[in-house]
Simulated assay, not measured.
Amino acid sequence: MVIFLTSSPTGPLDGSRKVDGLDKKNHFVDELKKYWKNNSRCCMIAASPDAYKQNDDMCDFFRETFLKEHFSIQCFDLIDRRYSDFTKDELQKYDVILLGGGHVPTQNQFFKDIQLREKIKDFDGIIIGISAGSMNSADIVYCQPEEDGEAINPEFQRWISGLNLTKTNIIPHYQMVKDRYLDGMRLYEDITYKDSIDHPFIVLVDGSYLLIDKHETIYGESYLIVDEHIQLICHEDETKRIDEIEL
C-alpha cells in the first residue's frame, strides 16, 4: 500500500495559483507515476454519499484529469450510496482508491456504514486522500469544526475513529482558512490551537502532501501545530520525514 494524503491534488481551492489538471508542485505527479500501474482499475469513494449529481461530476472530473496527465486507466468507478454493498474482495481488485473531499463527519459516517476501515486495511495499491479523505485516513480523526455552529455545539465530536492508514492527523487548506472565523472565534488561534494540546497536527497548504510508503514523508510547505504552538517544518520543494520531527 502506498498512500498520498493531499490537501488538494488539483491546485489551491482559493484560486490563488492557477493549475491546469493535477498540481505538479512538489513533484506530486512524478511521485505518483512511480507507483502507477498500466491499465489501473480506479475508484473514488465519495464524501457526500447522497449527493449523486455532485459525485458523478466529481468522478468525471478526476477521471479526465488523470487521463490528461497520461495516467493509464482501465476503469474509474464511483462508490456512493448507490453502490455501497461491495465486498472486501471487490474493493481489493482496484489498483487505485481515491478518498474524496468534503465534510469530514459526513464522510466518516459513510466510511463506517460501508465498513471501509476493515475492507481497506489489506489493500495492495495506491490510496489518494483528498482533503477530508486525508483527514479521515487517520486512526483517530480530528474533525476541525467547519460549518456554522460546530465550534460551539457541545455534542459535535472532534475526535472519531477513522481508517487507521496512519497515526498522523492532517489538516488541509491552511493558506485558505488560516484567518477564518467560525462561530465568533478564530478557527486556528481560538479553536484548533486549543485542540492541539497533546495532539500534534500536520497542517498542509494546497500543493503539499504526505507520502506514506516505507516512511511517512512530507512534501512541500507544511506546519506543525502542537500544544498551542505552530511552526514551519517543511518549505516548498523540500521533504521532511515525520520520524525526524519532534512531535
Rank of each mutant, 00 (worst) to 15 (best):
T106Y: 06
R241D: 03
R241N: 08
D23Y: 06
Q231H: 11
E238L: 02
N164S: 15
G11P: 00
Q74D: 01
H27F: 14
T192M: 15
W159S: 08
R41E: 08
I191W: 04
K167R: 09
M176L: 02
Y94L: 03
S208L: 11
S16A: 10
F76H: 05
I97W: 09
N39Y: 10
H27C: 05
V2G: 11
D179F: 14
A51F: 15
P200G: 09
V29C: 04
K240V: 10
G15H: 13
T87I: 11
F4M: 08
G11M: 03
N153M: 07
Y52S: 09
D190K: 14
Q175L: 10
W36P: 00
I212E: 01
A138G: 00
D30T: 11
R186C: 13
I45Q: 05
C234F: 00
M176H: 03
H229L: 13
F62K: 03
D195I: 10
V96G: 04
L67F: 06
G101K: 05
K37M: 00
P200K: 07
I212D: 03
S16K: 15
T239C: 06
G162L: 08
Y219I: 12
D57Y: 15
S40E: 10
D56A: 11
G207P: 01
E238P: 04
S84A: 09
I79G: 08
K93R: 07
N169G: 03
L13E: 02
F111E: 01
C42P: 04
I140L: 14
A51I: 04
K18Y: 05
S72V: 11
E150D: 03
V203L: 05
S208P: 04
I120T: 04
C59W: 05
N136A: 12
E146L: 15
S8T: 04
